[in-house]
Design a protein around this nucleic acid. Structure first.
Lengths: 259, 259
DNA sequence: CGAATAGTGTCTGTGAGACAGTATTTA
DNA sequence: TAAATACTGTCTCACAGACACTATTCG
């Protein structure tokens, strides 16, 4: 358990003679779903796309290459707090879904030395990134469609991190209610379906409405939205015929392969 | 992204003036299921219990207290390789299920300094720990029932780590086929049920046999064991009436809350 | 009217769940 | 023969899946 015998007791604990890490950054894969009106002015469902935020490095190593936002951890903060701080600094947003998912510690992964990186994924509703988008292509901070990001040659092992993050968010999209991160508090079944499909293109459920609305089959994940008088709330922001609005109930189902 | 401006380019990269971590250990929560014959000589199902392995610390800090096995990572290995190495050193076993699950980085969690710990969980079949058990209570390495371990005052934040690991292994027990780590290659439905219940006491399925054997309902997670001639294999090691043996097929089901 | 989205009617099959009953071997 | 484990028969109900059909509003 001990790195050396110098650490045998408190009195002779000075500094380790052993090699210690040169840094422990938190890196963040920030996902968002952009939506764009296909036919402006017409009531039609928007085109949605899963995007992630990258920054262009200003310094050695990998100067000029795109990388994940992130930064080094301080002694007086946890890696989670570090990620939260960096997220605020990079994107100006707080109070978004932020979740640790893996550590990257392969030797020589960083030419600056022995650096162990902690990877987080953040799910940010596009409305929080509104200001950011204006800068667009010219800037050193920019959103990329995931398909595009996967094909890029990113700094460090950030390509691996992005792939792992994508895999993770796809699994969680189907097994938890994180879809809510990309939706308003009240939404239609059609919107929910579109969001799921944006993240997990393989997810195909004809009759999705039927399944989500049939009695207690979905174990009460969703509930119809109602106004103060208890009347059902409907919306026609994306459709001709008004659609029932739903909200997540807050209960997370427990999944099992055995029953 | 940079900790300081000293790192601006390769030529003037020497050593950081900034504080860097004092160590990055891997700690391992080693679970096993012990089984003990209730009535020796009688053909009856054994009593099973979920246990985990702890070591008693020989040095400051937390001298004399029980802690998770683990050790400091070297620069030329990943945290996973470090965990694997420590697992071999502590228990003498290799080729067991070993899985990273979380990082612990709360400031001041370790009185020796700024130490970020990477926690793994290992699932070890009790037959691999056979030698270890002989030493038993007197030794500095010993198995504890999880209920007992949870009530102990462990070194560092290892109590938190154990709780998180238990939560994790319970979820995975129901959503993946890791039950196979605690079972022989061929087993009866009764054994499988017992193993699941040992890890997740809340799991109650009267009619478990029915569910697991009814047509393709379990999507082919299990298949009946057959000998060279294709005849079904049965066992009566734990029962009077011989029971059908099964094996995991290797296919992991994909779960979804949406359909 | 046609396009676009939202839903419903209806049928078929199959699994979940309950629970009592039967089967096989051992002490 | 009683105990212990391993199944099986049978019934009911609900949902999954398919797919065509209706509903509502916009341009």
């Amino acid at each position: 358990m001990e790195p050396n015998n110098e650490l045998e007791n408190e009195s002779n604990y000075t500094a380790s003679n052993y090699r210690t890490p040169d840094g422990a950054p938190s890196d963040i894969v920030i996902f968002t779903i952009t939506s764009e009106e296909k036919a402006p002015g017409k009531k039609t469902m928007p085109a949605r796309e899963l995007q992630l935020l990258l920054i262009r490095r200003k310094r050695w190593p990998f100067e000029g290459q795109w990388a994940l936002p992130g930064g080094f951890c301080d002694e007086d903060e946890s890696v989670y707090d570090c990620a939260k701080r960096e997220l605020l600094e990079e994107t100006g947003v707080a109070d978004v879904h932020l979740e640790y998912f893996n550590v990257y510690s392969k030797p020589k992964r960083d030419p600056r030395g022995w650096i162990i990186s902690h990877a987080f994924l953040a799910l940010v509703n596009e409305r929080y990134l509104a200001g950011r988008r204006a800068q667009d292509d010219a800037a050193d901070v920019r959103l990329f469609p995931v398909s595009e990001a996967l094909a890029m040659d990113l700094a460090f092992d950030h390509g691996d991190i992005v792939r792992d993050a994508l895999e993770k968010v796809r699994v969680k999209m189907l097994t938890t209610t994180i879809a809510k991160q990309f939706l308003p508090a009240e939404f239609t079944i059609g919107e929910l379906y579109q969001v799921i499909r944006t993240v997990v293109p393989d997810f195909e459920e004809p009759n999705f409405i039927r399944k989500m609305t049939s009695t207690q089959s979905r174990e009460g994940i969703l509930e119809p939205a109602r106004d103060e008088n208890g009347a059902l709330k409907r919306s026609n922001r994306y459709s001709q015929r008004a659609a029932q609005l739903y909200r997540f109930t807050g209960c997370e189902p427990k999944l099992s392969i055995y029953g």
